[in-house]
Amino acid sequence: MAGFILKRILSSVPTLFGVLTLVFLLVRVVPGDPALAILGDNASEQALQAFREQMGLNEPIWQQYLSFLAQLASGSLGNSMVTGDPVFGAVLKVLPHTLQLTVFALFIGVIFGVPLGIWSALRRDTWVDYTCRLVSLVGISFPSFLIAIVLILLFAIEIPLFPVISNPEDTVASSLYNLVLPGMSLGLIMTAFVMRTARSSYLNVSSEDYIRTAKSKGTPRHIIIFRHALRNALIPIVTVVGLYMGLLIGNSVLTEIVFNRPGLGKLIVLSLNLRDYSMLQGLMIVYAFMVVLVNLITDLTYGLFDPRVTYS
């Protein structure tokens, strides 16, 4: 197991290395002078020069690249060009909010999506199925900010149950409470995606030979559904949920804007506006790392459902 994890991490090293290089290059080919962008037009030539010196912008690009790598190797993402604070610290401060949001949404998506999708499959070609399919299709077509706005209008304004804007300093209980609306807005979309996958996966499984074998044994229907079919159907669902996690992490940017919620998304938008390139660079690396981690977790989750998977 530990060996498997290590191997998986090692095998993603080339990709991560590519990510680092790409991010470095993108940030360096930015049209315009970062010093000018950050210090403003009326900064003195001296100040500009000092800034470039401090940020290492005067060195040749390959040297910048090497010191970029050296810095990463020492476990630092560098300092913000704007505030001068360490990027890593700034990321760590908001990361929990984004993680809460996406994990909550994932939770909602699985809790509602899997049963609904299977219900739809069990009632294939009845009005239940048609309704579920139409609803999930509408669900995946909903832009995530729209669902957020609709939820705000319904549950924060028409029926004021939940706060619109969360306060980052809250206690655990109230931060959970603050999480409900933003989490639901992402979670409903996730539900729609999971429903579609669960339905098709269950239908595929239910026509497998081993389900016929189970019936031939006189196995009661509910046991066929939960023991024989569901466990097999979960395997492809795990794959797809892993893929959609990337979508969820990306879309959390929008949710954080609409709900004015702290998180990686708010931070990246802020850094974009301030042209804080070192912060952007660090954030991109964190995002890529999260995706790699999600893939690893997905692979490990298979083992829970599928005995054919071995970690060696």
Partner: peptide
């Protein structure tokens, strides 16, 4: 029928490779 199936009447299928549940 469920009570009779697997008890009084049982069946073996053509495809041994796919007729057993892979996760049980």
């Amino acid at each position: 029928l469920e009570k009779i199936r697997g008890d009084k009447l049982s069946m073996i299928f053509q495809e041994p490779m796919t007729s057993l549940n892979p996760v049980l």
